[in-house]
Simulated assay, not measured.
Amino acid sequence: MLAQYPPALQRHLREIAAALGEVVRPTALLLLGSAARGELSYLRHPDGRLELFSDYEFLAVFPSYPTRFQRRAIQTLAEQWQERIANPNPLFHIDIITRGRRHLAAMPPLIFTFESKQNGLPLHGEDVRPQIPDVTLQNLDFRNTHEILYKRLWAILLHLPKRFVLGQASEAERRVAGYVLCRNALDLTTVLLPHEGILLPTYRQRVEYLTDHYPDLELSKTFGPDLPGFLQRCLARRRDLDFSGVNLHELYATVTDSLRQALQMLLPTADPVVQALPHHSRRIFNEWPISRGEWLNLVRLLISIAQHQGLAQARRWLRTPKKGWLTVGLLAMHESLLAWFAGRPVRATEWLERSQE
């Protein structure tokens, strides 16, 4: 898989793996994410420079949970390599996830686990993929999969360049904005195809399947005839990073509306998303933690609320579904940006008021 990338990128990955192997001595190191899928996004400039739009993601496995020294060493190494690569793109970073070997078998049935097993590339030590549990349509955590939708809404807000929002974007900033929109749109297939009985590990495979079988898919009734072509264009633009002639405001409107339509599909009612989602949050999303780290964060937040607002308020906060409200808030923020781009009055508060009807 690495052979398809330019030599400089191959060298990055192999040298980072070697440095990790020497400094922290993991049992195994897997390359994850777009680089492992063969879908790394990068731009070759006329002067030969390579600009990375995708992350480098690794899973480092240790005999037991990594020590504090090992975690610090990993963080330091990632920071040093980011400086050494000196990639100018604000989207690029090096992410190194750690696991104890005995925890591999307990990885929950998430899309992350599925892709780690299917796509992970061993770069150092043992091949631990057989120890990662199988994830199938029968055991996939669908609620966690649905959460990808609000994470995409959040990622778009987080990564759209400020100057793009202000209408002052350079060519490079337009390219970043276009990539952000297309990359996040592609996860529509990640969320929706399992509801059609299809679980595939790469964007290319998902888009190809959706295109080839679209008339037979239930989701075609919601999205209409244009979705396959739209996703094909997003896949192509994510690869070639050519956004010349693309109306990015229209692309933004299409992406955010498609994410809203996907949320509508998941609801058991035809009521608008803004009204229905907070009331069906527990049905759509995981409102309780699914990992040790999430439980610890929940306990810390609960203690903090109890200390500052009292025990009764802490109990109320604990019982209240949150992710539906979070998603409605994100949709309202996108609605405000779309209104800003179109020169319409910004009425985000009206969206939030409608959600309480």
Rank of each mutant, 00 (worst) to 15 (best):
Y5E: 10
R14D: 06
A17E: 00
A18F: 12
E22F: 08
R25G: 09
R25T: 13
A28R: 02
L30P: 04
L32T: 07
D47F: 05
A60D: 03
S64F: 05
Q70L: 06
I74A: 06
E83D: 10
I85A: 11
A86N: 14
P90V: 02
I94V: 08
I96Q: 02
I97D: 11
G100D: 06
G100R: 03
G100S: 10
R102A: 15
A105C: 10
I111Q: 02
K117H: 03
G120T: 07
G125R: 01
T145Q: 11
E147M: 11
L149E: 04
Y150R: 02
K151M: 09
I156F: 00
K162Q: 15
R163T: 11
Q168G: 10
E171S: 13
E171M: 07
E171F: 05
Y179F: 15
L181A: 00
C182W: 04
A185Y: 11
A185P: 13
L193Q: 09
P194Y: 08
I198W: 03
L200M: 07
L219W: 11
F223R: 00
L227V: 01
Q232L: 13
Q232W: 00
A270V: 10
V273L: 03
Q275G: 02
L277F: 05
W295G: 03
N297K: 15
H308Q: 15
Q309M: 12
W317K: 08
W317Q: 12
T320V: 09
M333A: 15
S336Y: 11
L338V: 06
R347A: 14
A348V: 08
T349W: 12
